[in-house]
Design a protein around this nucleic acid. Structure first.
Lengths: 166, 166
DNA sequence: CACGATTCCATTGCGCGCAATGCACCTGGG
DNA sequence: CCCAGGTGCATTGCGCGCAATGGAATCGTG
């Protein structure tokens, strides 16, 4: 009864799931940092390596679809991975618009050193495997909902309301 | 039986809760962007305004503790809010190390235009209020676990194992 | 084949996040 | 009062994210 508002205030920072997600992701990044530092990787670079360890020789576009990132982010990131000697970037011979990303021997070898990372993170999160799977599914549902919205909404580019709204 | 691995591969991108959180936060940001664009704010700027709408006249340090950000991020952000005419930054008279952030009339007035933002986001997320609260609590638990780790672990700065490990 | 549309990647500009560093200011012990 | 240590903010440098733009290659249609 000491609260000044009876209903929750939707504009209150601590009420917001979005802020919780936002700040948790930053703390996750800080938790990853010292682990990945030993691999010479940042977190987004680590994600790119995860994709390549699954399937070598992918295009920038394919990588972007897996990571949900565009070329504006990936191009410089991949150049840094190349400078680090982990991957090679070469134009596709059959379609020179595409750039294919391939692991070097060093890049493939790095996977062994990365094996311990997920375990450390799981431990730091304080979750058991059950909770983790459940939580992942729930957050994925949000991501899918947002993704669907983002693909549908932006059509009105010029002007002109479409004839039917629904 | 078509799977090449029986146990889940911890290094598989889609298995990872962390990547799900990471990519979901980016999609959330993209969902916020057009909404906040009408307020002339980015998402972190919006978070700072949320804090100030709760409690005006706070120090940079206090703001950083609420948002879990440091001065390296906040100083330029607050300068942009000041340039936009939403806040004022002034040294505390009693302790000139501190900078106090105060809303301008424009900044206070902006709250009205922000009222509709949480509703739009909730709608886009496809969640009901029950799920949202539960999910927030669960993610908060992770954040607390990570936060505790990050405050404890880094002590070994120089060398010298401490006499007792536990 | 010609040519407009599309696809794929690269580049630019801006705003975070954050580690590292620096500096002015305050504080406590002598 | 003095000075060593701590505190609070600013600055620098780097790596994302992403919108916007551009250019080269390819495709589709005639």
């Amino acid at each position: 009864m000491a609260q000044s508002k009876k209903r929750v205030d939707a504009l209150h920072l601590d009420e917001q799931l979005c802020f919780t997600l936002y700040s948790t992701v930053h703390l996750l990044n800080r938790t990853y940092r010292p682990l990945l530092e030993e691999l010479g990787l940042t977190y987004p670079q680590y994600l790119a390596m995860l994709v390549l360890w699954e399937e070598d020789d992918v295009t920038v576009k394919a990588l972007g679809e897996r990571m949900l990132l565009d070329s504006g982010t990936l191009t410089p990131l991949l150049k840094r991975l190349e400078a680090a000697g982990l991957v090679k970037r070469e134009r596709d011979v059959l379609d020179e618009r595409q750039v294919r990303i391939r692991l070097t021997a060093t890049g493939r070898a790095l996977r062994a050193k990365a094996e311990c990372v997920p375990v450390s993170i799981l431990e730091a999160s304080g979750l058991d495997v059950e909770e983790l799977r459940d939580l992942k599914e729930r957050v994925l549902a949000i991501r899918e909902a947002l993704s669907a919205r983002l693909e549908e909404e932006p059509p009105p580019p010029t002007a002109s309301r479409r004839h039917k709204t629904g």
